[in-house]
Design a protein around this nucleic acid. Sequence first.
DNA 1: TTGAAAGCGCTAACAG
DNA 2: CTGTTAGCGCTTTCAA
Lengths: 337, 337
Amino acid sequence: MAPRVRIEDVAEAAGVSMKTVSRVLNCEPNVREQTRDRVMQAVEALNYSPHMFARSLAGNRTYLIALLYNNPSANYMMGVISGVLAGCETQQYNMLLCPAELEDDRLLRGVESLVARSQPDGVILTPPLTDSPALLERLKQLDIPYASISPRNQQDCICVAMDEPLAAQEMVRHLVQLGHRRIAHIIGHPAHGASDWRLQGYRRGLEEAGIAVDPELAVPGEFSFESGVAAARTLLDLPTPPTAIFAANDDMAAGVIQVALQRGLRIPQDLSVCGFDDTPMSEQVFPSMTTIHQPTDEMGRLATIALLSSLRHSEPPASLRVPHTLRLRQSSGPVPG
Amino acid sequence: MAPRVRIEDVAEAAGVSMKTVSRVLNCEPNVREQTRDRVMQAVEALNYSPHMFARSLAGNRTYLIALLYNNPSANYMMGVISGVLAGCETQQYNMLLCPAELEDDRLLRGVESLVARSQPDGVILTPPLTDSPALLERLKQLDIPYASISPRNQQDCICVAMDEPLAAQEMVRHLVQLGHRRIAHIIGHPAHGASDWRLQGYRRGLEEAGIAVDPELAVPGEFSFESGVAAARTLLDLPTPPTAIFAANDDMAAGVIQVALQRGLRIPQDLSVCGFDDTPMSEQVFPSMTTIHQPTDEMGRLATIALLSSLRHSEPPASLRVPHTLRLRQSSGPVPG
DNA sequence: TTGAAAGCGCTAACAG
DNA sequence: CTGTTAGCGCTTTCAA
């Protein structure tokens, strides 16, 4: 293996000092344009890339950000991961993946050992960790900047989120346009802010259409397939069952579809079913599912970029918004009769 | 923030030199039992954990392994990732996640930039990257050890795999026991070794039952839902259609189910359908899918442990085997009539 | 079996 | 605008 090209070699090749090369590489000011060019040429010529660890050791930064998660959805996480990696790449940062426990004590212990071992320069939080007051407080104590994806509280923090209430509202609007008036909602897991937002959007959608909100049509769920199955049974056993069921995520909607088909209901002729998230599964079930697409990778990317730029420039925290998309598929149709 | 506890502090507390602490921490020989204990006590007392970057810089190892992947299945990847993380934890290693291109040139460029930037001590390969001769050769040139998950060639390398032919054969056996004789197979993507193994197991299963292999019943697919849809149409349009379809993965099986239901076929009364992988989706479709469970996390964990221990002790490469499990669910049943 | 000294490759602080 | 010097926290060498 060829010996490593060091900053000294570049300095020599460019006829400047080590420190000047360092300045150029770190985009520090006070370097003449011409000198900068000369250095960059040497960097290219020697195909130099800085030794991350030496850099970290000397500079007291790690060039590492940690992605903390406790989320059972592989698709959601892989989306976010791709985005975070994309965001890191531009800035020569690396990502550390950190599964975390939900329970406060263990969560904090996990974070502490992460910090002891790897000292990340920043952290990206995904739901529901975004909403653990204990965690947020500890990160502040440790003076570790963080960016959150879809946190419940979007004030005074770096975060990226969709307009979830609006998205849910649009879904209801879609059902109303199909003629539905008896529209049910299966609420998500109570620990997730998304559950509240989607419920809120559901209610707004009904109000907007002048439909009274019937409390027995909004039933609790937990984002799991099984909870969707249970909720579907409750709803379909009602004296006057709904003609459309809007579940707060795709997994629960899949549960609804399963129960409906088992009972011999045709979808969407007898019952319309909608989900939320646009998981790959939502296209693969029969009938394919009307749902809302969430740009998870873009959210990861933006959160990372916002975090990294706040590390550099310590800007005021900003709350970013990403667009949702309604995916109309086969599981929603005109109201029966 | 409290100042970092350094190896010097531990040394002082234990009344030994820095180097002795280092010896203990790195499990080097030639330390008296009693000294070792004293050092460990000091480590505990001060809650010391070594500074990874300083260690890397001085020791010329990074304590990093890279997980290289090009696999569209989020569930598969999250399983492997969990396992690799679990394997890393025991040894104080960190994992770097590296999405890679499939095409040779770009794949190699990606690896080279990874190495230039992060110098991982080792690499974990997932299908189909496991089977890129160019990649394997380059890793050898760069003298970077690697472990493969389910590689096509399992000779003379560190690898972990299931007995895929056997698993597929058992699935066919299951269908034969249900009375099926006209059993079709949808083959996986040609670039994946798994496609060959599963096809092979399918054939063995038929031979074992004394059923002649009808070539028109083994149709090509690409592991995608859409390819499953296409293959299902081909098979169900046959003059004498199969009574059971065994797809080489769950996504394609989902495609089969969709086509069958659209044509008014009942599953499993009119047609049995089986998949492979046991994705979460396989439980959530209607009817829930008979499939084969692959312990992806365990595979990731074992590959990591094997890789790390080969780094330490340079043992001869070993090929590890993990067990599969048949998950019998609702999509397979007795042959019609 | 243990310790002292010399770096690993880089950046920070300060001096020019 | 640029260079010099002194570490960052650890492991390696070599000496005791």
